[in-house]
Amino acid sequence: MGFSTLIDIAGSMFIGGIILLNLLNLNNNLATNSFYYSNYKNSQVDLVILASVIERDFNLIGYSANYNAIKNDSTIIYGDSSSIRFLSDFNNDGNFDTVYFYIGNVNELLNTTNPRDRLLYRRINNNSPKIIGSVTEFKLSYFDGLMNEIHSPIIYNSNVNFIRVSLRVESSFPVDDRYSDAIWKRMTVTTKNIVKK
């Protein structure tokens, strides 16, 4: 009688322990996934907001409210794989403004765990640059009228007809050593106001 009770107790402790460990593990996984997907959602939201800004600004390359002032030659002053400077009537007053998109150094975001994240800046004329987002990739590619890639750097009056923009946003902190990310790519964001050659 006593021996069987001991066996019962030992057995139930063993089974109970296994169940408890499983439950704890399940709880841990739930928590991890919950935080990961929450991070993922935040990355997606950040990406959508950033994409809205990029789409709007790049769609206005070469635009002027004064249609008589629209430039015959290229409105892209300089471009490379991670920055671009172009002319655009940003405030719709008929005068061209210089708009400069570029990414900062990784050292500017030392407070985050992500080693790849950088700030994306936009500067209009000689005003101080504004931060419009945090990205791990901001890649630009340039193409001529036949969709042949033009190697950067792009200088003024290059035969650029199309620009491909690629963005990658990652979470600042990892969950379980995983950074959640979201990617956005667009070709020909900018074609409508560029004078085709």
């Binding site: 939201v45 959508v48 809205s52 709007r56 409210a65 249609y67 629209i70 719709n92 106001n193």
Partner: peptide, 15 residues
């Protein structure tokens, strides 16, 4: 023939 295109709205989601 289109000469200039203006798409000036930046629409931000309200979550």
């Amino acid at each position: 023939t289109p000469l200039s295109w203006y798409q000036g709205q930046v629409i931000i989601p309200n979550f």
